[in-house]
Nucleic acid binder design. Structure first.
Length: 252
DNA sequence: GATGCATGGTGACCACACAC
DNA sequence: GTGTGTGGTCACCATGCATC
């Protein structure tokens, strides 16, 4: 069924989106600043428009029908785009005093935060950055819930509601003490690497890292003997490299 | 400006589910 | 059974718009 946009009231989509969030006519009306009766009438119009009940009463809540669930993501995405377009029109970085919450793993924070702060001093001096410690699958949830504006991390997958863009690729290195038997002139083989006793740092919230995932794909596993909860200061000598991508994601 | 119509708002009321 | 919260419906009113 095609809808005539000339006759279409965009407020109906806002109401639909709010009903999806609130799961109640009274609560949705309150959120939009109208009475329950007005919200009920809006729902009636939505039902006529889509020829579907959209929300049915289940106990104390109004649960979405399959048709409503089908519409939820496209409608929510369309509204986000509209809001973004309207906000962009007004946004002036030099005038903005907004606080941005950015989720970063400590590595990304160390790499990028100094440059970011330096850049912001020039283009948006009153903007402030609040860095949030994120890790594991939780970081995507933080984005979906709108608890952070941006996450700098390594992502294998993000839900459709989240935009993803690769920042740069870099190499991993293995580090070990200078008098380690493996330190020599010859190349470090994979077998020798796997047999060595590893000290490995797992960022908070992660149960495995890119190294372990890469090895797992090869059907290999390394010998980890210590997993500290913070980085140690040790002399660095690169021996083996594994490609690693750092990406950032943000709510669409 | 007057009129008629469509739209969308409110208040009042009723029905239903749920907790006690 | 009663009180509370919530959704649906109805009557009525205000507003905007097209037409004359």
């Amino acid at each position: 069924m095609k809808h005539n946009l000339n006759k279409f009231d965009l407020n109906l989509l806002v109401a639909f989106d709010t009903l999806m969030t609130e799961r109640g006519v009274t609560r949705a009306g309150r959120a939009l600043g109208i009475t329950q009766a007005a919200m009920s009438n809006t729902l009636r119009r939505l039902r006529e428009l889509f020829d579907d009940p959209l929300f049915v009463k289940t106990g104390a809540r109004m649960e979405p029908t399959p048709r409503a669930l089908e519409l939820a993501d496209p409608v929510s995405q369309a509204l986000r785009e509209i809001r973004k377009a309207l906000d962009q029109e007004r946004f002036d970085p030099m005038q903005s005093a907004r606080t941005y919450r950015i989720g970063m793993i400590d590595y990304a924070s160390a790499m990028l935060l100094p440059q970011l702060v330096k850049h912001l001093r020039t283009v948006s001096p009153d903007v402030t950055i609040e860095v949030v410690d994120v890790g594991g699958e939780e970081e995507v949830l933080h984005l979906e819930r709108g608890e952070v504006d941006l996450v700098l991390s390594r992502f294998q997958w993000v839900p459709p509601k989240v935009s993803l863009q690769r920042l740069f690729s870099m190499n991993y290195v293995a580090i070990f003490c200078p008098n380690h038997p493996l330190v020599g002139d010859g190349p470090l083989t994979l077998d020798a690497f796997l047999e060595a006793r590893h000290i490995h740092y797992y960022p908070r919230g992660m149960d495995k890292t890119v190294v372990d995932e890469a090895l797992e794909e090869m059907g290999k596993k390394r010998n980890i003997i210590v997993s500290p909860n913070q980085y140690c200061t040790i002399e660095v000598r690169p021996r083996i490299m594994i490609e690693h991508h750092l990406t950032y994601a943000f709510s669409k």
